[in-house]
Structures are given as structure tokens and as C-alpha cells.
Amino acid sequence: MSVAGPHPSWDLVADWEQLTAYPFMVQALEAGAIVAVMAGAIGWFMVLRRQTFAGHTLAMISFPGAAAATLAAIPIAFGYFGACGLGALALAAVGREGSGGRAGESAAIGTVQAFALGLGFLFVGLYGGQLAGLEALLFGTFLGITEGQVVTLLCIAVITLLVLAALARPLFYASVDGAVARAGGVPTRFLGVAFLLLLGMAVAATSEIVGALLVFALLVTPAATAQLITARPVRGLLLSVVFAFAVTWLGLGIAYFSPYPVGFWVTSLSFGLYVLTRLCPLSPRGRQRTEAPPAVA
């Protein structure tokens, strides 16, 4: 996936001109920006709600969806968004049953996840086991984005973010303080289902670009980093978006001039940012002792 040929100079304007010389690169930058903003915002709520495991499961579900779409020769976006939408509803149903224990809920989600991966494997097998296609599904197709895909992504991102903006305050209430919110008339159950659907859309869009396995570089890491830095909700949300955006564009830029794939650079940059934040605390007061564990739904 790397591009041989171009060499970086220290002249940023010249570098930018090199970067945008090819349409595939422009489309990658556009799609990356759209996905990063969406993933940064929704990821912040996901980390706040400790639904990282649900997000991970949705990413796993996106894989059989995409594989099935490839097999059926329909646009792959239908596979991603269809599977993630259905997956979100399934997770909402599972979560409703496990009213008491979170352990029971995460076990049920894990079961769904394993089954989804098995299905994906079957679809890839039925397709003839084309390995190049499999790698794209798992690790992304950053540099193969079409203009049509960019437009579709933009529409989905705008709708998703508008809905998120409308739900934001009660969703924040329900996430931080569920029992009081419910007693105060906030429809917490509705919000839970709605958020899973939004998360499904964000995961589907992100998977389509960075692949099912690297979704978390944009969905979790920027949000977790932002929450380490600030406890202020608005500031944290903005930081999360900025981080996701920065690692995506920087990753694309570096990958353009290097022999290594985009996914590697994006994940490494966001991981590096997270480690750096953990090591040098930017917020002087109330550093947290334990990080929200990724395996908790």
C-alpha cells in the first residue's frame, strides 16, 4: 500500500503540493478527515460510557458484513453499514436482557463477536479466499477511496453528528449518572439504543477506511487521551476530535513518503500520543490511577 517515489523536503508547502498531486491522495485525506471527526466525537462518548467492548464487537461485525457484500457483489458500504446497524440493534437487545450484571452482558457480546468473525471467515472462504481482499477488509483501503465513497461518508457523518448533537446533553447525563437521569425523566434506554446505532455508523465508516482491526486507533485512543488530559466535557470532546484528525492526516502524510502502510502510521501515532500523555501528566490535579479497561463493555 505504500507509495514509492516522492521524497519529503523540509518545505511544508512543497510537501503539501506533493501530497495532493494525486486524486487518490486527496480523497484519502478527505475521507480520513471525515472519519476522524466522527470517530473522535462518538469515541469520546464511547469511552465515557465504557462501551469500548461493544465498539470492538461492532468492528468485528463489520467484517462479515463487508465480506458478505463482496460475495454478493453489492457496494461494500452496504455491507459495512448494514452489518453495523443490525449489530448495534443486536447489542441493544442483549444489553437489555442483562439488566443486572455487566459480566453477563459482556459475555453475551463476546459470543456475538465470535460468531460474527466465524461468519466473516466463511464468506471470505466462499469468495475464493482472495487474500488481497481479506487484507483490505481487515487493515483498510485508505488509498483506494473513490469520490463517491467520500460523498457517502460525508452524508453519513453529517447525519450522525447532527443526531449526536441533539442527544448530547441527556446522553452525557445518562452516561455519567444513569440512575438520577432515569429518575429525572431522561429516556436512558432509548438513549442507549440510539447511541449504539450512532456507534455502529461511526464504526462502519471507520472500518471502511482503516479496516476492521484498526478501528480503535481512531475510536478509542484519541478519546482516551483526551479524557486523560481534561475532565471538562466540551474541551475533552474537542480534543478527542483534534487528536483523531491529527493522527489521521499525519499518518497519511508520513505513509506517503515512507515504505510502510498508512494503518501502521495512524495507529502508531495515536498510540504514541496516548503513551506520551500517560507519562507526562498535563493535568496537574486528580490524575486518575486506573485507566478505563478496554475489555469492559
Binding site: 452525557f172 449518572d177 438520577v180 437521569a181 429525572g184
Partner: peptide
């Protein structure tokens, strides 16, 4: 949140 958390 107790003041206006329920508002959309």
C-alpha cells in the same frame, strides 16, 4: 446535570 441535563 441536575439543572438542565435532561434538555435535548
Amino acid at each position: 446535570l441536575g439543572l438542565d441535563g435532561a434538555r435535548w
